[in-house]
Design a protein around this nucleic acid. Structure first.
Length: 210
DNA sequence: GCGACAG
DNA sequence: ATCTTGTCGC
């Protein structure tokens, strides 16, 4: 697939994004997804499902693969989506929400990894990125404070302070959830700066490459 | 033309 | 993404 074809694919799928929650959305099992890279082009896609009430891990899956698409800003999903979908297929527990390592609507074409993964799986999803794609004001220092993340004059996500005195993370809607809910769900996954979902899937993926 | 650009 | 445990500072 060429970058031009990838962009066309994003434009084709973008209308399928539903940036609101089903009335009956109840989040108990949350999946964190991440891809780790080796020195060569091997990679590991990892997913960890935890019970949001206890933060206990209830299911995990890892797959080994190769990087078949380069990292290009705006086309990140075409590199990470294949191993992540394969990992999701290995789960025994169906997650209620996917927490992705990257952007959702906070994307130049409003179709970041979290949107793509949400649409492909038809599961609610949110993007949690460590660096922003857009402009934002610094949220105040206390845990839970937020500011808008703005791109092209529209609010595409939020900067969320997940712990006092740390850099914010950048939350955007992926699919089948609204921004308020997305921020609330992410915040309750955070013991330190990054959500436990992200931390555990990251650890699982890198361990698999050893 | 130049800089910016998730992981 | 990756290099990476203990250590410095609030």
């Amino acid at each position: 697939m060429t970058p031009e074809e990838a962009i066309a694919e994003q434009e084709r799928l973008r209308p399928l994004v539903r940036p609101w929650a089903d009335p009956d959305l109840n989040v108990r099992y949350v999946a964190g997804l991440d891809v780790s890279y080796a020195d060569d082009d091997r990679l590991a896609g990892a997913v960890v499902v935890l019970d949001v009430e206890t933060l206990y891990t209830v299911d995990t899956a890892v797959v080994l693969g190769t990087a078949d698409f380069p990292y290009l800003p705006g086309l990140f999903a075409f590199r990470e989506l294949p191993p992540l979908v394969r990992a999701l297929e290995k789960l025994s527990v169906t997650p209620d929400l996917l927490v992705c390592d990257g952007q959702g609507l906070a994307h130049p074409r409003r179709f970041g990894l979290a949107c793509h993964l949400g649409v492909v799986t038809d599961l609610p999803s949110v993007g949690v990125a460590k660096t922003p794609m857009g402009r934002f004001e610094q949220p105040s220092e206390e845990r839970g404070s937020v500011t808008d993340l703005v791109e092209d004059g529209e609010v595409v996500g939020r900067a969320l302070r997940t712990r006092e005195g740390v850099k914010p993370v950048f939350v955007s809607v992926g699919h089948k959830i609204d921004l308020d809910r997305a921020c609330a769900e992410v915040l309750r996954l955070c013991v330190v700066r990054l959500p436990e979902t992200t931390r555990r899937s990251d650890a699982l993926g890198r361990a698999q490459l050893r």
